[in-house]
């Protein structure tokens, strides 16, 4: 029998303090409501013929008093919860990025070094981890109760979720959004390890090249290099038949779209350019990029994104 939940991330204690405040406030109000109810029920029972005295008549002052008191407490709770929430969903600097793909009914996880796992996630303790989540079919939800974090995983876009584990151990990973028959089997574990253990684990599970290396193979195989050049140098009349934007150095740099909007070429942008290029068409190139939706799986897109990222010079922004 378990009464308490492990606090295994930096945000867990913060979330629990908030819960504690809520619990204490509720208990106080429950004591007030149940207390008054029971006292009145007993004291003012019809068979008790004691003199009631003057019955309270003026209500405005009382009504306004408890309205304002309630509002003040509520506003305090709102600010507290909002502050933590905003910090929880703002990705931190310098985090270790791990990709998570949900599909009916499993979690597929890819590390930057190319290591892959299913229904388990190995992370080092004491490092900020940023998860980039997407789904191949329906909406899933990535939840780790011990970290007090949760986010829906949607098809067709990336979501970001971060945490910093503070305690080595193995914790539950649940899908919290009903995703079909196997919903309750879409569970796994998060294994938090010391830094050294994590390095060992990475080495022992070394994959066929890093994610970026695997992406490079796909880049050649799917004909991307035909237009964008073999090293992502970009296309022009000399080295390929069609003009296509250069990809080296693209990641993290601003891109001007046809409608004049300027966006930063981040993971989500590159992902969209591969699967739905019409959505955010880049200016000054003809609209000839075909959509790879249905051709490339989400895993493949991840690898391509990782490859394009690796073409960017190390930027210190």
């Amino acid at each position: 029998m378990k009464f308490w939940l492990a606090q295994a991330s930096t945000s867990a204690p913060e979330s629990d303090y908030l819960m504690l405040a809520l619990v204490l406030a509720s208990i106080a109000i429950l004591i007030l409501v149940f207390g008054l109810m029971l006292i009145y029920a007993f004291k003012y029972r019809a068979t008790n013929r004691m003199d009631r005295g003057q019955i309270m008549k003026k209500t405005w002052r009382l009504e306004i008093a408890w309205t304002i008191a309630t509002m003040a407490v509520f506003f305090g709770l709102f600010v507290w919860g909002a502050d933590l929430y905003v910090r929880l969903f703002r990705p931190p600097a310098g985090a270790l990025q791990i990709y998570v793909v949900g599909k009916q009914w499993m979690w597929k996880i890819q590390h930057e070094g190319g290591q892959r796992e299913i229904n388990s996630l190995h992370v080092p303790v004491g490092r900020k981890i940023q998860l980039l989540l997407t789904s191949e079919d329906v909406i899933h939800d990535f939840a780790v109760p011990a970290f007090r974090i949760k986010h829906d995983v949607l098809p067709g876009r990336y979501e970001s979720l971060w945490f910093e584990a503070t305690m080595p151990g193995t914790y539950h990973l649940f899908c919290n959004q009903l995703c079909g028959t196997g919903h309750s089997r879409m569970v796994g574990e998060v294994v938090v390890m010391s830094g050294a253990d994590y390095e060992n684990w990475l080495a022992a599970n070394g994959a066929a090249g890093t994610l970026a290396e695997q992406g490079k193979i796909l880049f050649m195989r799917n004909g991307c290099s035909g237009c964008h050049g073999s090293n992502g140098a970009g296309g022009n009349q000399s080295n390929s038949t069609v003009p296509a934007p250069p990809l080296a150095g693209l990641y993290g740099s601003p891109v001007t779209l046809v409608d004049g909007q300027v966006v930063i070429a981040d993971d989500g942008y590159i992902h969209d350019c591969i699967l739905t290029p019409e959505k955010r068409r880049v200016a000054s190139y003809p609209p000839i990029m075909p959509s790879f939706s249905g051709i490339l799986s989400e895993d493949d897109v991840l690898k391509l994104v990782a490859y394009i990222k690796s073409l960017a010079p190390e930027k210190q922004l």
Partner: peptide
């Protein structure tokens, strides 16, 4: 409460 809901949602 936003942050509490993150843990309690669903």
């Amino acid at each position: 409460t936003l942050a509490a809901d993150v843990h309690l949602h669903d």
